[in-house]
């Protein structure tokens, strides 16, 4: 019979985050979000609800936007994880989406921003010519309480249009 580890006993986990392997010890019940924030020190991934609605914790898992509060860290082993800290270039140059959010005033308090940036990055990388309606629908995955959304939509649209030009 296979022995099952207790949920509160840490096991070794390797997470590949922004191109770097992170070796951590995580309880099986530890969420990917908590592992990124507390074990990897990557606190740019935010927690707004911890039940999968608000999307502030959105990261890319093998290129797909996922809610990191709804995944266990152990489930993410072997996957390429990307977080907001990996968006800008190594020399500090902002990613076009970060530039666009800045230019279009797509953030106010900034708490939802990492989630929206990663959601938008995932959407534009997989569907670079996404239509306006579909883009709006995709962005309805996440919540923002400050901006009223319009400037977020304008920011993402401007990056899509610049890439397609």
């Amino acid at each position: 019979m296979t022995e099952i580890s207790p949920a509160d006993e840490a096991v070794p986990v390797v997470l590949r985050v922004n191109g770097t392997d992170r070796r951590i010890a995580a309880e099986p019940r530890r969420t990917l979000a908590d592992a990124l924030r507390e074990d990897c020190g990557l606190t740019g991934t935010h927690l707004g609800c911890e039940h999968g609605v608000c999307g502030a914790c959105t990261v890319l898992l093998d290129g797909e936007p996922v809610r990191s509060c709804l995944l266990f860290a152990v489930q993410a082993q072997g996957a390429e994880i990307r977080t907001v800290e990996g968006l800008a270039d190594d020399d500090g140059t902002l990613h076009p989406l970060q530039e666009a959010f800045w230019r279009h005033h797509g953030l106010q308090c900034g708490f939802c921003t990492p989630g929206f940036l990663m959601l938008s990055a995932g959407v534009l990388e997989t569907r670079p010519d996404i239509g306006d309606e579909e883009l709006r629908e995709a962005l309805s995955s996440n919540l923002c309480r400050c901006t009223g959304y319009q400037t977020i939509v304008e920011a993402v649209r401007s990056v899509r249009d610049a890439a397609g030009a």
Partner: peptide, 21 residues
């Protein structure tokens, strides 16, 4: 003019209470 507050928040290196640890 663009906001001086934004670059930190855009890079995910802001400091919210839950980030202090």
């Amino acid at each position: 003019i663009r906001r001086v507050e934004d670059p930190t928040l855009l890079r995910g290196v802001g400091m919210f209470v839950g980030d202090i640890g």
